[in-house]
Write a protein that binds this DNA or RNA. Structure first.
Length: 259
DNA sequence: AACTCTCGCAACCGCGTCGGG
DNA sequence: GCCCGACGCGGTTGCGAGAGT
């Protein structure tokens, strides 16, 4: 049984991409756009699996990628987002313009883990490393399930009140990610949710009570269209896109844009 | 100079989710 | 409602470069 392979293994190249393959892929996507990865290799004349093409494009060839070292601000943002979202690298990458999930994942595993350990923090729980004791032996943090990702990204958290009961993945096998516990306790009650990068924003939304931390705002989301960066969670959406819960999705900041 | 070890990045693999038929 | 194909994600592996001996 098992899943059929995504492509014919015998007729596909594997391993590092050559310059020629890169050029073919770039040329094809420039001419035809992204999408239909399954058929792309054949159309582009590449002896590669579609998944491989997609990965190569997403992680290396995309023109909007920002290469180079991560800044301290990016480090801190990644740490905070990871504390909030767990190993949801694609979500984290969505808040870091020009960075890919793979890049962030690698960077986390090679640099930030070490950085946190050197600070005496547990990279999984974002809690201080306890020498022993039950608190450090709590059940591994649960990942936020996929539907909860969006909720987590749009829910206006309060500092005293946990997020609404997000559907929690059924298994208890941990997975090394984050999320609220089944008891509704925030995973990191002491987590500082100030996720802004750079100096404090002067136009912090005032539509929420002082104890409310608007996650949309602090994650770097902004209002749809060219609306001011002020968060409009819970505000009426003139476009009618407002969800029933009064929350809506926001576009991530564009490169170089900070709140 | 040669060899071994370590580290970091790119790529692969398997699974979950989504959408169309 | 079910099935199947495609896509996207997260964990893992492989390999090259640099450091150390």
């Amino acid at each position: 049984m098992g899943r059929s392979p995504c492509c014919e293994k015998e007729h596909t190249n594997k391993g590092a991409w050559t310059k020629e393959e890169d050029q073919r892929l770039i040329a094809y996507i420039r001419a035809n756009g992204e999408g239909c990865w399954r058929s792309l290799p054949k159309s582009a004349g590449l002896l590669r699996c579609g998944k491989s093409c997609r990965l190569r494009w997403m992680n290396y060839l995309r023109p909007d990628l920002k290469r180079g070292n991560f800044t301290d601000d990016e480090d801190e943002l990644i740490i905070r987002l990871h504390g909030l979202l767990g190993n949801k690298w694609s979500l984290i990458a969505g808040q870091l313009p020009g960075r890919t999930d793979n890049e962030i994942k690698n960077y986390w595993n090679t640099h930030i883990k070490r950085k946190l350990l050197s600070r005496g923090m547990d990279p999984h729980t974002h809690r201080p490393l306890a020498a022993d004791g039950p608190s450090s032996r709590q059940a591994p943090p649960r990942p936020i399930s996929v539907p909860a990702r969006a909720a987590a990204a749009t829910f206006a958290l309060t500092t005293k009140q946990p997020a609404p009961p997000a559907p929690v993945e059924s298994s208890d096998d941990g997975g090394g990610s984050s999320g609220a516990t089944s008891t509704g306790e925030p995973r990191c009650p002491d987590l500082n949710l100030d996720l802004s990068v750079g100096p404090p924003a002067a136009d912090t939304p005032t539509s929420h009570s002082q104890r409310t931390v608007c996650l949309c705002y602090h994650l770097g989301f902004r209002g749809a269209g060219d609306a001011p960066t002020t968060c409009s969670c819970r505000q009426a959406d003139s476009s009618g896109a407002q969800s029933q819960t009064g929350l809506r999705y926001f576009r991530p900041l564009e490169e170089g844009q900070y709140i």
